[in-house]
Simulated scan of single mutants.
Amino acid sequence: MFLQVQNLTKKFNHKTVVKNINLSIKKGDLVAFLGPNGAGKSTTINMLIGIIQPTEGRISLNGFTPQEKVYRQKIGVVFQESILDDDLTVRQNLMIRRGLYPHLSRNLDYWIEKFALQKIIDQKYRTLSGGQKRRVDIVRALLHEPEVLFLDEPTTGLDIQTRELIWQVLNELRREMNLTIILTTHYLEEAEEADFVYVIDHGEIIASDSVENLKCKYAQNRLTMKVRSKNVQLPGKYQYQWDGNKISISVSTSDCLEILSQLSDQIVSFDYRQGNMDDIFLNLTGREVE
């Protein structure tokens, strides 16, 4: 496995904030960490990037550990708070960063174009909007062409257009560079695109699987129908919930079409909602994303 984590544990003043976390991450995957505030996501990320030391456990990236220089060269990080210099221009900030890595295949112009920084490249960093700063932050993390990009809630507070641009480019880079992305996010629609999801609560992994498998286990599709009469003859193999003259059923898409066809002359209106990441999160943690 490309990135392997075994029994990762972190204690602060005898309080365990991350407990026995195990991860197996394949190269090129987009992996999402989901969990409520205080669940241990950021602490886990900080151990993976080497900012804090685990109390117990092992982290290995192709055999290298976070304490080794090679490991640190293989990763890029976009923190929740920017670490760039407010008084320097975008170009100056990025040139300083790139100067640390003289032998790279992609020059600065490549990244400027990729993330549409042309109009702001000579502005001081402090003058940028939140979305502009975040694009620059991501470029800073990618300049040295890492194999793994860590994104700690990278699009929180950004408008939908900026979020879409960022993810469009990141998905292109995944294809071009076989880039592995490890993401924590409050936007569940971002996690929908992940190859694999770890749900973390109270410092422990409470579920881990592909999005599709998690949906099968924890997020049922629901058909709601308003019918003409409570005397309607319903197929017998389902469990129905009545609310006045409305019926709610958990069904697959194919079963939904069959029911609607059978009851077409009895239905006044209907709504079909597919299970999503919100359902998974709520069913696993008992809470909505904060």
Rank of each mutant, 00 (worst) to 15 (best):
A32R: 00
G57D: 12
T44Q: 10
I52N: 04
A39Y: 07
A32Y: 13
G38A: 05
L48Y: 15
I51W: 13
N46Y: 15
L34C: 10
D29F: 14
F33W: 06
K26C: 07
A32L: 07
K41A: 10
G35E: 07
I51G: 05
G50E: 03
N37P: 08
G50L: 08
I25M: 04
G28D: 02
T43E: 05
F33S: 03
G57V: 02
T44N: 09
A39Q: 00
G38C: 06
A39W: 09
S42K: 00
G28F: 10
T43Q: 01
M47K: 00
G50T: 02
T44R: 00
P36T: 04
V31N: 01
K26D: 09
I49S: 09
V31W: 05
P54D: 13
K27Y: 05
N46D: 14
I45W: 12
N37W: 12
L30I: 13
P36Q: 01
G38R: 00
G28S: 03
G35Q: 01
G50H: 07
G50A: 05
G28M: 05
S24A: 14
I49F: 15
L34N: 04
D29A: 14
L30E: 00
D29T: 07
L34P: 09
E56Q: 03
T43D: 07
T55Y: 09
K41N: 07
Q53N: 13
I52K: 01
G50R: 00
L34D: 12
L48T: 10
I52M: 12
G57I: 04
K27Q: 14
L23H: 08
P36A: 06
T43K: 02
K26A: 11
G35V: 03
I49H: 13
P36G: 09
N37C: 11
